[in-house]
Design a protein around this nucleic acid. Structure first.
Lengths: 227, 227
DNA sequence: GTCTATAACACGATAGAC
DNA sequence: GTCTATCGTGTTATAGAC
């Protein structure tokens, strides 16, 4: 805590600046040229540093991609935070969150195919379930928690605490669909959200009903056991 | 059709023999050493051909992996076919199919992590949704169709035609979970199947009930629209 | 601790000769 | 159809400079 006062800017140390420079350059190149055409040599050159220096800060190319991922996640969360400030019906809020995410990710659809490739590899730092991804994951779940907690809809008390995480899993599924969606402008994914939101809304409502209460309880028990 | 009679053995042409030799060698090495440690140079050398020759028959290393995948799928299908010959309760049959698949895949759990990496890449020939994977995919769905059609349980008429494909999607989800399952001997995945099967069974039964009939219909409409 | 410069390695993939 | 030689890549190693 000897460091002088730099309250807002995250880090201003000598090394931190270089690190930032490398990340920013990498993100820009990924965006402009895609994953494959962006080489470590290219990143280093464009950033004006040596290849060795890039590896001094990032153990692999994948770790650079992760920064890119975190950036997008942060943008998505920020984009919808305002729209979710006031309470409202559950389905409306869920639609806002999901479409907000989709809009933020849209420019990177082509890139996402390469990204997901390393993201699904078990043990990869890019995995949405990895320890390294925890900040980004928590950020996303926080948005969905906001969706649930600001909902005027009645939600089953047993389901409620787990619902944000379950919605996040659903969001991962939608993302998986989106990555593979070859329809123009990813129209099918938009349709998926449009259709899935009312369905989820109905299922959440139905979960409280006598005939389904036991199924809900069983499913939740299974989820908690296996997560 | 000038070729002489070779009814049983698929192909006996000069090139076909080389192709088979390369595939068999590759599959063996994948099984023994895993994905990363099996190099194209290693495959070529072990098969007694040149690297260029291997690439003459297979456009990429991934295409060789696909052959490996197809082999495993075929084994899994064969393993459960007998057990599903006689009709029985839906849940029992589903459990047989899912555990059969799991047992067949178990020796390749370590390998699967690398496999999935390329399998999820959009446009990859290894994708379970790709045209190249159609034979293996159809083979898997056929097993689940057998599960449904030999079931003594009452199944909603509207749901029934789509159920095999839906179960296959669920199976893909279980596989995804399995790949990331680090519990000893993948115990959690076994638990998942044990718990999920009765749940699915109950949901299939409930789908016919008056209160849920409309939700079922909506969900099916969405599925058909988006597949 | 931060950084450069350059070479070297092993790999997947390709080119072009025979 | 089959080969050898070579390319471009991620990554590592070396040897040092500020």
């Amino acid at each position: 805590m000897v460091k002088p006062a730099t309250p807002d800017t995250p880090e201003t140390g000598r090394g931190e600046q270089t690190k930032r420079l490398i990340v920013d350059t990498a993100v820009r190149l990924f965006r402009d040229q895609g994953y494959d055409k962006t080489t470590m040599r290219g990143i280093a050159q464009a950033a004006g540093v040596s290849v060795g220096n890039a590896y001094y800060y990032f153990p692999s190319k994948d770790h650079l991609v992760q920064q890119f991922y975190a950036t997008v996640q942060e943008d998505a969360a920020a984009a919808v935070a305002e729209a979710l400030a006031e309470p409202g019906p559950f389905d409306e809020r869920l639609r806002v969150a999901l479409t907000g995410m989709l809009e933020t990710m849209t420019p990177y659809h082509a890139f996402a195919g390469k990204f997901i490739k390393t993201a699904v590899e078990p043990g990869s730092p890019l995995s949405p379930f990895s320890a390294e991804s925890e900040p980004a994951r928590e950020r996303s779940i926080a948005v969905l928690r906001q969706v649930v907690e600001g909902a005027t809809t009645k939600i089953d008390a047993e389901l409620k605490p787990d619902l944000p995480e379950l919605l996040w899993l659903g969001q991962m599924g939608i993302t998986l669909y989106w990555v593979h969606d070859t329809s123009p402008d990813q129209a099918k994914t938009r349709l998926l959200i449009e259709r899935a939101v009312p369905l989820i809304d109905r299922l959440v409502t139905l979960a409280r009903m006598p005939g389904l209460k036991s199924v809900t309880r069983e499913a939740l028990k299974m989820y908690r056991l296996l997560k």
